[in-house]
Design a binder for these strands. Structure first.
Lengths: 234, 234
DNA sequence: CCAAAAGTGTTAGCGTTACACCCATGG
DNA sequence: CCATGGGTGTAACGCTAACACTTTTGG
């Protein structure tokens, strides 16, 4: 199936995903780079005519990262006229050798139902789509200019993540199954963009009674070995 | 213009509004009752082809309540296949004397971008749409069965309202410009569905430094007259 | 003077903060 | 023994809860 297939997708409706990962102390998201233009965009896609909206987003996530069963949350739907710039999609498609009628469904106005995902950086197998040269990680606090309103979409995703992090305790989704307290703290610091007091953080996390303590992690460094933790199941 | 106009609206995209009001100690929402069927639904509508999504929701709110400049927040977009029941819209339209082709755009699949609004009950001038016999207030904790997934939409709206009430301090939008502390407390109690300690509530609200104290309200009752408060501007 | 509701003072409790201290590890 | 980073004890602090008390109003 090609993206240009006329049948099969709902017109006017797209989804975009802000896929967060954490590595080397930095919060990052995935961006696609379109052929030739060098333009950067969030990974996204369209909704099949007989597919749940959420399923479409899950499918898109799976296609780009290979991952299933991921923390995925819908956070906002962007539908201003200002985001309707048919020449952008037209240029992207032409760079791929597709020359469409001006009234082709892909050049029409779209609203974007936007999701954010939290994934374990280590497990991702990146796969570009057919219009893109690459899909790659970009640090959240030095993002380049993205197409359309995608920078605003990222900003809103980050805001939602910050608001929900402590209430829903979803930060662990960015880490491997077992992690040290320091790693968890780095995730929180990367998301909030500020340093957190070590002892306070440790006590707050342990006090929530959501962590299970496992064996120590011996790194070969000359200091006390930290415990490994995991989130309690159910 | 009639709802059946084929041109002018984006297909597949609808909006629905959960419009909250507060009266006589109860939290209420507005529901439409369709002709003949007796079916109840959230007020909603479609998005014009050259209209911002948010503008469409504002327009719908204005059409039903007469109100402008209202607290309105988009909270979720519902897009499961399970909500696609063309026979529901078909029955509603037939009850109004409209018999459409099965492939008419109004009988197609829709996703619903959902908004909730907080309004001053006293100021509303209710106006049914052309498919409805009535638009009226219903108490949130004894809602009847609504069409499609509208009960779930209301549930999610209420959940979002509860989560945002204290963070965004939006409760005052349900009250007149000036109100007593007791009235504000009743709003909070109606939204959370539980009693709040009077003195604690008063001190917390005053401590937030968002209220301005005005003259006392003499009701003729034989007890101390309460102060009137308003929210500080900016 | 009384009843009722509004507003405030006071104390206790509890969770977070700040800082110190101790522990484990490898060089 | 030292440097380094992890873990915990303790006291101060601050916010909320709990309850008593005072104030205001009309009958």
């Amino acid at each position: 199936m090609t993206v240009l297939e006329t049948q099969g997708f709902l017109p006017h409706i797209a989804f975009d995903s802000v896929i967060f990962g954490f590595s080397k102390g930095k919060l990052k998201i995935l961006l696609m780079e379109y052929h030739d233009t060098g333009w950067l965009a969030l990974p996204g896609g369209f909704v099949r005519k007989e597919e749940d909206l959420d399923e479409a987003a899950k499918r898109g996530l799976k296609e780009r990262t290979g991952l299933d069963n991921i923390y995925l949350e819908q956070f906002y739907t962007f539908g201003n006229m200002a985001r309707f710039k048919p020449e952008v999609m037209q240029t992207i498609l032409e760079a791929n050798g597709f020359f469409l009628d001006p009234d082709h469904w892909m050049l029409d106005r779209f609203i974007s139902v936007s999701y954010f995902a939290l994934i374990n950086f280590e497990k991702v197998i990146l796969t570009p789509d057919e219009l893109s040269d690459s899909i790659a990680w970009y640090e959240i606090d030095s993002l380049p200019k993205l197409i359309l309103d995608h920078n605003a979409i990222v900003a809103k995703a980050l805001q939602t993540l910050r608001e929900n992090l402590e209430r829903k305790l979803i930060g662990g989704n960015l880490l491997p199954e077992r992690f040290t307290m320091n790693e968890l703290q780095q995730v929180y610091e990367a998301i909030f963009g500020e340093k957190i007091r070590r002892t306070t953080f440790q006590r707050k996390m342990l006090g929530l009674d959501i962590l299970e303590r496992h064996e120590k992690l011996y790194t070969g460094k000359s200091h006390k070995a930290p415990y490994l933790y995991s989130f309690k199941k159910v």
